[in-house]
């Protein structure tokens, strides 16, 4: 169980944005992605998760162990907190364990409809999804947006103690300090050159 990324090139809208990205994560390790807006953090994470094809290079991690999470977290407002989580658990062939609700401070909200939650509470529910799907390699895109300081710490604790502690891996794009003991990968040096190869319009130039 480890994540290898070698010479990865990614494209947004058919145009190369990053090239030559390489890193490795051993079990229990996290990696923080940093870089200015538009550098391609989201694109990189979506490519790592297999949602879009890579232009070049390779991404290797055990099959069926990756999960992607962004600000849009697939929460249905007409379903209750437990129903939302139970659905994702079931799709991934698992069951909703009570300790997940505790980890994300959702015990008191368990029977509320997700539509009645505040933005921060919804975000916690979205992150709790990561706790029920049993995936080892997480690709997280700005997971702490609209969380207060207390919730950020709670999420960081879960990530460190439960996820990474049990041999998980996480690649996180974030602007704030989660307090994790994790290396930071600055993406600016990997910015694709103006005339980088591999764009979908390359044949026309």
């Amino acid at each position: 169980m480890s994540l290898h990324v070698k010479d990865l090139g990614v494209a947004r809208g058919g145009r190369p944005v990053l090239e030559g990205v390489s890193f490795d994560c051993a079990p229990g390790e996290a990696l923080i992605l940093r870089g200015p807006n538009g550098i391609g953090k989201t694109t990189l994470l979506r490519t790592l998760a297999g949602l879009q094809p890579a232009l070049a290079g390779e991404v290797a991690f055990p099959e069926d162990s990756g999960a992607y999470a962004s600000h849009a977290d697939g929460i249905k407002s007409q379903l209750s907190v437990t129903e939302n989580l139970a659905f994702w658990a079931e799709v991934h062939g698992g069951q909703l364990a009570d300790n997940v609700l505790e980890d994300f401070d959702l015990v008191d909200l368990r029977d509320r409809l997700a539509g009645t939650l505040s933005a921060g509470q919804k975000r916690r529910l979205g992150l709790a999804r990561l706790g029920v799907i049993g995936r080892k390699v997480l690709f997280l895109d700005e997971p702490t947006v609209s969380l207060d300081g207390f919730s950020v710490k709670m999420f960081a604790d879960w990530l460190r103690d439960t996820h990474l502690g049990q041999g998980g891996i996480a690649v996180i794009a974030t602007h704030i300090d989660l307090g994790l003991d994790a290396p930071v990968l600055e993406l600016t040096p990997y910015k694709a050159a103006q005339d980088a190869a591999g764009g979908s319009d390359e044949a026309f130039l």
Binding site: R46, A49, G50, L51, D64, G66, A67, Y68, A69, S70, H71, A72, D73, G74, I75, K76, W88, V91, H92, G93, R129, I133
Partner: peptide
């Protein structure tokens, strides 16, 4: 609806 709330990419990365 699944496109708007982001369920679709999550389903795409699920075992289904």
């Amino acid at each position: 609806l699944d496109h708007e709330d982001g369920s679709l990419p999550l389903l795409a990365t699920s075992p289904l």
